[in-house]
Design a binder for these strands. Structure first.
Lengths: 146, 146
DNA sequence: TTTTGATTGACAACATGTTGTCGTTATGAC
DNA sequence: GTCATAACGACAACATGTTGTCAATCAAAA
């Protein structure tokens, strides 16, 4: 295998691993609030501003149908609700209920503590640099396929 | 939310997005060989050296049970086979069949082409830097939870 | 040698995400 | 204003990964 192919494979495998690690960390953080990473991901998307399911999917880079199921579950659990969309009769807007906002707020302290521990290891500016690298890679892949 | 928490959330969300992007790219590359990313990930792990299912799981950062199912599917499709393990009666060694090796080889040209396109965008050394950042983050998360 | 704990494979239930399809609704071209 | 196209929600089938449990196997301590 070419050296270049090896590098891209290594990047992909490391991303797969990071994905699992963040899922683990996120589940640990979200469990006290009785949330999962998937629910948190959708709920936090509409925390500041209600959005249609399709808009959440675009924002998060997921498929519309996957977000749809999660959103329905959130509504079922009373953590979010559908509001009428003045701009679209069918595409209702998802927004958190007070319970949903409380769940998100409950995660906050643990998330901040975890972030502080990460920054303590990576040093000041270190996490920003890593994020910049992640985004460079993501933008590159977008150009490749899109 | 604290600035630090925002940063960690941004890192996680970007990793989730990257995960999806690499799954898309990988599936596109693997489809001509009638492989999926999951199959490719397991099959490539034993390309150079046969390994037990548990060892593959550790290498790839997956659960033993998930790899087990994929490995059984690979054997079922004739892309891999179980060989007796002299060191362990129960833990057989997974190894690719000639068909499995051919499937991996078939992916190679497309993978190299994709890698070249990525390197063309990120510049010389750019991909290496990104991988280094990915690994720094992964090692940090390991220290946090393990 | 015996026993105790860790590793491993097997199996099942479940969560999550994708793909495909359909009818509904909005948008823009004509 | 009509019509074609795209966007959207609904629903189902499926792939993949996790969690939990159990018995078999190995390794190390007693």
């Amino acid at each position: 295998m070419s050296d270049q192919a090896d590098l891209l494979s290594e990047a992909a495998l490391t991303v797969y691993r990071l994905n699992g690690q963040f899922l683990n960390l996120g589940d640990a953080l979200a469990r006290p609030a009785e949330l999962t990473v998937a629910w948190w991901q959708v709920l936090s998307a509409v925390e500041a501003e209600p959005m249609s399911v399709a808009a959440i999917a675009r924002l998060r880079g997921l498929t519309r149908q996957g977000v749809q199921r999660t959103a329905d579950l959130l509504v079922d659990k009373g953590l979010a609700e559908y509001a009428v969309n003045p701009a679209h009769r069918r595409a209702k807007l998802l927004r958190p209920t007070p319970e949903g906002l409380a769940a998100i707020a409950q995660i906050e302290p643990g998330l901040t503590a975890a972030a502080e521990r990460v920054m303590a290891v990576l040093g000041p500016g270190g996490l920003e640099e890593v994020i910049a690298a992640l985004k460079r890679l993501s933008a590159t892949l977008d150009r490749l396929t899109g």
